[in-house]
Amino acid sequence: MIFKKVLFHTHFRELALNSLKTILELKKAGLESIILTHIIPRDEVSFVPYGGYLKETENQLKAEARMRFEDWQKIIAEHGIKSRIRIEVGAPNAEILSIAEEEGVDLIVIGRKKRTLVEKVYVGSHIMDILRRSPVPVLMSKYMVQFEWENEQLTRTNDHIFDRPMLATDWSQPSENALQRMSALKGLAKTILVVHVIDAKLSKGMSRDRLSEIEKESKLRLKNYCRKIEKSGMRAEYHLSAGKTVQELVRLSRDHKASMIVMGKTGKDWFSEYWLGGVSHQIAELSELPALLIP
């Protein structure tokens, strides 16, 4: 289960190349080729009110994208990785998912754009849509992120994202899938952190005995996860916490210096998923770390 073929989608926003460079490290873990993808939103060139289709603009945008990609291809080639360019016009999410399927990629990498106020309130942004619908793992790359911690504005650069991945598990099947996928990082990750949070909603009103029983059980399971990781030749350490899941996961990632967060996609029903977002989607949105979501 290694990431041999990766789709890297970009809008050519600032630091996009740096984001690309961070995934070149995957070469050590078996990465063979990258599909450089740029989608020109259809509305940019089509449906000119009472006019037609801006063919010249489309050609110009395609030429600009191609030129940038060709420059990037040199850097990719220096790392001994093959690459191809896909530039299409269409609905970005649908096109990304369709290209991923056509090319048979193992991983989709997408950047996170600066969020508008509306997107901050409404979790269902375009990127969330891809996270929700992709049948293959999606890495939400965040090269440079500004975030608030203890009333301080901080800036973080995520350049060695595979050093200390933090696998957050809720013991679900997607979490098991994520665990199996961790073997793809062999030769790349120095230590894998395995964490679980006993959610406050679950422990509320629970007897002390029951709680310690759950704690014991959780530790056993975490140890079991670590054992599996160590069996595949990587180092692992576990941490258990309790409280509000999303906030605790963000805190754990900071306390233990995680370099990225890996999660199985939480399987909520359509309505909650769309309007509220699962834990995995909230983490992807709120954490300053890149998030790798495994279906």
């Binding site: 089509s46 449906f47 009110p49 009472y50 037609g52 289709y53």
Partner: peptide, 22 residues
């Protein structure tokens, strides 16, 4: 004409996008 009714330009746009010269 293309500007006589709203769908005219939408049809033209889609046709041109899919490679039909208009």
């Amino acid at each position: 004409s293309y500007i006589g009714n709203a769908p005219n330009f939408m049809v033209r746009s889609i046709a041109e996008e899919t490679g039909t010269p208009m």
